[in-house]
Computed example of a mutant assay.
Amino acid sequence: MKRLRKSTTIGSLVAAAALALAGTSAAQAAGTPSDAPWCTGDDLVISAHDMRPHGTVFKGHEIRFAAAEGVTCTIGGSLSNVRFLDAEGQDMNVSLTGGQGEYREATVHGYYHAVAYAGSRIDGPRATPAFIQFDLPGQGSLGARITTAWPSWIGSPVSFGNIGWPAS
């Protein structure tokens, strides 16, 4: 029962971030091209950021998907095959849990970027990965495999939301 409660609470954190995304998507989508091509790994500058603990229960991270210089493209959906890696590139076997949320797409260009939020509890098991590795969403298949630096410790399990606009 305790495990179910933790998973439900972590899912609630990601769901709250997804609701916040919904409120900002219309404002940020104004003026963005709707016919932009789908983003590939070469189109994006991807980075992970520590959001600091929220109160005394959760720690959040933001994975940011910014367009490379001169690129306009669209991305959406969820990350696949997520792994946290140590400094030698070995899988740390960090537990992951659902919490995907509603499917959204975001067109990234200039100052507009998309994000995927990750949440974990601050109590319980912790890990300090050096990198996160995942497959980008593609259109009808998996996108590019990405490995990027991870900024700080995480709790376990980690829950991810879908890619969308940043919460304001």
Rank of each mutant, 00 (worst) to 15 (best):
residue 1 M to C: 06
residue 3 R to M: 03
residue 4 L to E: 07
residue 4 L to Q: 11
residue 5 R to L: 07
residue 5 R to G: 09
residue 6 K to Y: 01
residue 7 S to C: 02
residue 8 T to P: 00
residue 9 T to C: 06
residue 10 I to N: 04
residue 11 G to V: 14
residue 12 S to K: 07
residue 13 L to K: 01
residue 17 A to C: 11
residue 18 A to L: 05
residue 18 A to Q: 15
residue 20 A to M: 08
residue 21 L to Y: 11
residue 24 T to W: 03
residue 27 A to Y: 08
residue 28 Q to Y: 09
residue 29 A to Y: 04
residue 29 A to R: 12
residue 30 A to K: 05
residue 31 G to R: 00
residue 32 T to M: 02
residue 33 P to M: 01
residue 34 S to Q: 10
residue 35 D to A: 10
residue 36 A to P: 12
residue 38 W to H: 13
residue 39 C to N: 05
residue 39 C to E: 08
residue 39 C to A: 11
residue 41 G to W: 04
residue 42 D to Y: 03
residue 45 V to T: 10
residue 45 V to S: 15
residue 48 A to F: 07
residue 51 M to I: 02
residue 52 R to I: 06
residue 54 H to Y: 04
residue 54 H to I: 08
residue 55 G to V: 01
residue 55 G to S: 09
residue 57 V to G: 01
residue 58 F to H: 05
residue 58 F to D: 03
residue 59 K to P: 00
residue 62 E to G: 10
residue 63 I to A: 08
residue 64 R to K: 13
residue 65 F to H: 09
residue 66 A to V: 05
residue 66 A to E: 13
residue 67 A to K: 12
residue 67 A to T: 06
residue 67 A to H: 07
residue 67 A to P: 09
residue 68 A to F: 00
residue 70 G to Y: 01
residue 70 G to C: 00
residue 71 V to S: 10
residue 72 T to G: 02
residue 73 C to Q: 06
residue 75 I to K: 03
residue 75 I to A: 02
residue 77 G to C: 10
residue 78 S to F: 05
residue 78 S to R: 05
residue 84 F to M: 13
residue 86 D to Q: 10
residue 86 D to M: 02
residue 89 G to M: 05
residue 89 G to P: 14
residue 90 Q to V: 05
residue 90 Q to C: 00
residue 90 Q to Y: 05
residue 90 Q to D: 15
residue 90 Q to R: 15
residue 91 D to K: 14
residue 93 N to H: 15
residue 94 V to H: 09
residue 96 L to S: 14
residue 97 T to M: 12
residue 98 G to W: 09
residue 98 G to N: 08
residue 99 G to T: 06
residue 100 Q to L: 07
residue 100 Q to C: 00
residue 102 E to S: 08
residue 103 Y to L: 05
residue 106 A to Q: 13
residue 106 A to V: 15
residue 107 T to W: 13
residue 108 V to H: 15
residue 109 H to K: 14
residue 110 G to H: 07
residue 112 Y to Q: 09
residue 116 A to P: 14
residue 117 Y to K: 02
residue 120 S to H: 10
residue 121 R to H: 08
residue 121 R to V: 05
residue 122 I to Y: 00
residue 123 D to S: 12
residue 123 D to A: 04
residue 127 A to G: 05
residue 128 T to L: 12
residue 131 F to K: 14
residue 133 Q to V: 03
residue 133 Q to G: 03
residue 134 F to A: 11
residue 135 D to C: 04
residue 140 G to T: 04
residue 140 G to M: 07
residue 142 L to D: 11
residue 142 L to P: 06
residue 142 L to M: 10
residue 142 L to T: 06
residue 144 A to L: 00
residue 144 A to W: 03
residue 146 I to G: 15
residue 147 T to H: 03
residue 147 T to Q: 13
residue 147 T to C: 03
residue 150 W to G: 02
residue 151 P to I: 01
residue 151 P to E: 07
residue 151 P to H: 04
residue 152 S to A: 13
residue 153 W to N: 10
residue 154 I to N: 13
residue 156 S to T: 14
residue 157 P to W: 07
residue 157 P to Y: 09
residue 157 P to T: 02
residue 157 P to I: 01
residue 159 S to M: 08
residue 159 S to E: 05
residue 163 I to R: 15
residue 164 G to E: 03
residue 164 G to L: 02
residue 168 S to M: 06
